[in-house]
Design a protein around this nucleic acid. Structure first.
Lengths: 379, 379
DNA sequence: ATTATTACCTGAATCGATTCAGATGATAAC
DNA sequence: GTTATCATCTGAATCGATTCAGGTAATAAT
């Protein structure tokens, strides 16, 4: 099998029509040879295929076929951040896995679309590169992961008018939009985490938050900043922490310091822990909105010579693979990453198959108690 | 912004031509309004855009545009296995991350293509579903990960005649094919792992191998099976182990037992360890071709009440995130996952930009000694 | 022997844009 | 006053297939 690579980049590409002409048959016959073998005699089919091979015809052009057929058999998976950042988090892979589990055997293929690359402060350029990709991508439908309610990429995606499933997006003001959605019990999960340490007698908290808005700098977040949040998942988790803490009769402002991180990475978790532990009074429990952040906190705390959980308890969120192997193993709130993908895939598939009813599923979270949390130290 | 979702699925889709007609201008003008704003007066452009909005025109159809332009701005990432399995391994995400780092800001988007789904023993169906997807996917080029030399999906991909970068594929018989490639020092890496334990006085080895052929069942592998391997990476790593061991003056057949796993998962690693430790004489060092497998082995060994590394040393391969947090932290051979992706992306980009020269880069491996390996026990 | 059926093949319309060589009229240059 | 330049806009060709309503000849049915 010798194929000249790059051969079809040039103008001189061999097309179906060339094969037809060479053989003196109609183009439709050649097409049938590939798509409906039963529509022509085996003999003719063979010679079509042979001629194709001889001429260097590489088979029907997928783009042309898609145009004519009106489908691409591709599902777009859209993330708010660049893919290079998104896949920094191991749970992105789990989610992909879940989607694949549902759509792969239906012949769908997965297109990864990332958000703004290099977003200089210049929102000047009317045609943002990122917007462009969400607009120009060839897919039959979208699975959109966790955008701020007002994200431009989200708008661009919606504008395509294709079937959509939203993931981890808690609709607030706008009310019931025209899409299916998959999310988890974010508020409950956060409450589970907070209650866990509250029950252990903790009363001074350091909270490591995920990003609150698209333009985020890491640092302690004031109440104002907490209120101005546009990332819905962050918002709801924070609310969960807060409600649990207030319900225990504590004052939010004085008993909890909130540190907002710019990236969901262990490194940011370390910075956050450093900042939070420098507060007075010093928190005895760290509540992190992700395991990545929690793991970083763990690293920092241990490096400071403090003991987990004797001096400080740490509770994460996600239960990513690896958290169980941390030392100490991380107490965390488990969410079903793969299942989330599966549900998203299933819901989108339903729409692609013409089902017009929109569904919304909310998956449960579960507190997984491991070694990183314990009773508050006696002061 | 209210958009009727699914509106463009039906026949009644609004097209560029509709907008042109409504406004009494040429289709090319409408096209220009979107693609070359400088080619028409701002006033007209505005009314085109407004009319489009009013009519519900969703913008130029990406597929039609691709057909005309001849590019898709999409890169296909092809894996030999289903995506649902591929993304079970955290290093898949790292690789994606690396590719994205290079191609994302060039406006390319990433299409994930998985291998055979549900490969019943029936190779009967002439049109395998998997083959179909590799053939029908709309991309400008491929990055192909680690196929058996004779994989049909590989052939299908090659047949497309598009630019290709092969990853982790050690070309053997065929010699220099027409593609760029990225790989790592697999043999050297394996030697590093083996030498490490050899230097610690070990002389009885259990080797946990990755798949050797597409149709694999887990179990101990005879010398014959070892010879009939088609997965090149596995082959070369095994050779590395073997050469190091033989170079130390030991006999391969009697001093090393090889267990072939069907999946690269911790669960398989446990099975493998169980089988290998049941051998007589019992191995004192386990060499695993991946950290996933090594981690499973670790689990099994500890569950048996044995100590790592006092009773058994374990050395992995990959240095995946998390291996450092294992207990004990895993000694392993590090390979640069993200860099591999970056190089693959860069090489493909070069081809897409018309560079016809093909390059091949080989990245280094590095032994990372941590707690899971130590001196051989005194017998 | 006549009609119905079947197997095989063709032509033309279509999918939805992009592109490029002009046409047109207006403005600038000399 | 005539030609050159410029900014706008148009028409037709094209990208590469798929689809479907027939057409033709051969076979089967009555």
């Amino acid at each position: 099998m010798t194929v000249k690579r790059g051969a079809n980049k040039t103008k001189g590409r061999v097309t179906l029509k060339d094969v037809a002409r060479e053989l003196g048959v109609a183009a439709s016959t050649v097409s049938n040879a590939y798509n409906r073998p039963d529509q022509l005699s085996p003999a003719l089919r063979d010679s079509v295929l042979q001629t194709a091979e001889r001429l260097g015809y590489l088979g029907p052009d997928p783009t042309a076929r898609s145009l004519r057929r009106g489908v691409t058999n591709t599902i777009g998976l859209v993330y708010p951040s660049p893919l290079s950042y998104t896949f920094t988090d191991p749970i992105a892979g789990l989610f992909v896995q879940g989607i694949a589990l549902e759509v792969e055997r239906q012949g769908y293929t997965l297109l990864l679309v990332g958000g703004e690359v290099d977003d200089d402060v210049s929102a000047q350029r009317s045609t943002k590169p990122t917007l462009a990709t969400a607009t120009t991508v060839q897919v039959d439908g979208f699975i959109v992961h966790c955008f701020a309610s007002d994200d431009p990429v989200l708008e661009a995606t919606l504008t395509r008018g294709l079937p959509i499933v939203m993931v981890d997006h808690h609709i607030d003001q706008h009310g019931n939009e025209a899409f299916s959605s998959v999310k988890i019990e974010d508020e409950l999960g956060a409450k589970q985490a907070a209650n866990h340490v509250l029950e252990h007698g903790h009363s001074q908290f350091g909270i490591i938050s995920l990003e609150m808005t698209p333009k985020t700098r890491s640092g302690l977040a004031t109440l104002d900043q907490q209120a101005a949040m546009t990332y819905t998942t962050t918002k709801i988790r924070l609310e969960g922490y807060r409600r649990a803490i207030e319900r225990a009769g504590l004052d939010w402002e004085t008993s909890a310091a909130v540190y907002e991180t710019a990236d969901n990475t262990p490194a940011e978790g370390e910075l956050a822990a450093a900042s939070l532990l420098a507060q007075t009074p010093q928190p005895t429990a760290i509540l992190a909105m992700s395991d990545q952040l929690a793991l970083g906190a763990l690293t920092y705390i241990k490096r400071q010579g403090l003991d987990v959980p004797a001096d400080v308890s740490v509770v994460g969120f996600d239960d990513m693979p690896g958290s169980i192997h941390a030392s100490p193993p991380l107490t965390t709130v488990r969410q079903p990453h793969v299942d989330k993908g599966k549900h998203a895939g299933k819901l989108l598939l339903a729409q692609l198959q013409g089902d017009t009813s929109l569904a919304s599923v909310t998956l449960p979270t579960k507190l997984i108690v491991r070694g990183s949390s314990g009773p508050a130290p006696q002061s």
